[in-house]
């Protein structure tokens, strides 16, 4: 394999790691609450801008990323408690409501930050390239790859090795029974929603450092997240990882080989998967 294609391959995998960070939150919310949170892209962008502002002011990237998580997690709290509970029980209304929220948030971010492109400043030790054999690769992207893997492990441990995770998984399968057993499922829902939103915020801060932030970045990341979840299936962590890997790699292959049809290269295989498994690789009918 030539150096160039290995480089592109790494680009695909690191992009996949970012996609996983964003889409894992999306699929968690979708899986448990049955809400397709179309404001997820807007939350990503909000997290990005927030991370940018705090990281620039404090001079510390990690403080910025943490601030993005907290800030967007709280936005998720406001969204769930302030708006979504008024349309509880009707999935379609919930989805369309989050769409309205996405429009408002995106437009207000445009008011605050303008149409300029921002890049979240990265810490010094992640700048520059790592020398591996004959090629150089940006350290920061490798850091994102590592973060994605760590996040997968943490989420997996949380979902499959803790009481909260057991409750979330049970809630995905049968919320009524969980409630009948005396567990406050609303609180689990809210926690999951905040966690999912916080992951979007983290994605924004992390992605804002190498994809840059601009007003339509939210729609772009939302489409990628949709593709990941459609391929992987609702609520499946493994599905999100596999979907992210596929979309990331296809995206980088598409950009190199068919720049004008990069979108097609991602969504063609997605369509093919759908033809055989309408609810995704690891999904089940809602």
């Amino acid at each position: 394999m030539s150096g160039l294609s290995l480089f592109q391959l790494l680009n695909g995998v690191t992009f996949a790691a970012l996609l996983f960070i964003v889409a894992s939150g999306f699929t968690l919310i979708f899986g448990l609450l049955r809400i397709v949170n179309l404001a997820h892209g807007a939350l990503y962008l909000m997290g990005g801008y927030c991370g940018y502002a705090v990281a620039s002011a404090s001079g510390n990237f990690f403080v910025g990323a943490l601030a993005a998580m907290v800030c967007v997690g709280l936005a998720g709290l406001a969204l769930d408690r302030g708006l979504l509970r008024f349309v509880g029980g009707n999935e379609l209304r919930q989805v369309l409501l989050t769409l309205g929220v996405a429009f408002v948030v995106n437009d207000l971010l445009l008011v605050v930050f303008g149409g300029d492109t921002f890049t979240v400043p990265t810490p010094d030790f992640l700048r520059g390239a790592l020398h591996v054999g004959t090629m150089f690769y940006p350290k920061y992207r490798l850091f994102v790859l590592g973060l994605g893997i760590v996040l997968f492990c943490v989420l997996w441990l949380m979902l499959y090795r803790t009481r909260l995770g057991a409750l979330i998984r049970a809630g995905v399968d049968d919320p009524e029974t969980i409630q009948a057993m005396g567990i406050n499922i609303r609180r689990i829902f809210l926690l999951t929603f905040m966690l999912g939103a916080a992951l979007a915020g983290l994605g924004g801060a992390v992605g804002g450092a190498f994809l840059t932030l601009y007003p339509s970045a939210d729609a772009e990341i939302l489409v990628f997240s949709l593709a990941v979840v459609i391929i992987g299936g609702r609520g499946s962590l493994l599905g999100a990882a596999v979907g992210a890997l596929m979309v990331g790699l296809l995206n980088s292959i598409g950009q190199v080989m068919f720049p004008e049809f990069a979108y097609f290269v991602i969504f063609g295989p997605m369509a093919l998967i759908l033809a055989f498994r309408p609810y995704g690789l690891f999904g089940r009918a809602a």
Binding site: L38, A219, V229, I230, L274
Partner: peptide
């Protein structure tokens, strides 16, 4: 083959392909 929220999700993604094509196929 899908319905409800999944149908909505899918049609968004399909519509976005068209958008991406129109944007990139300069």
């Amino acid at each position: 083959r899908t319905s409800g929220v999944y149908f909505l999700l899918l049609t968004i993604a399909l519509g976005m392909i068209v958008w991406g094509m129109c944007l990139r196929w300069t």
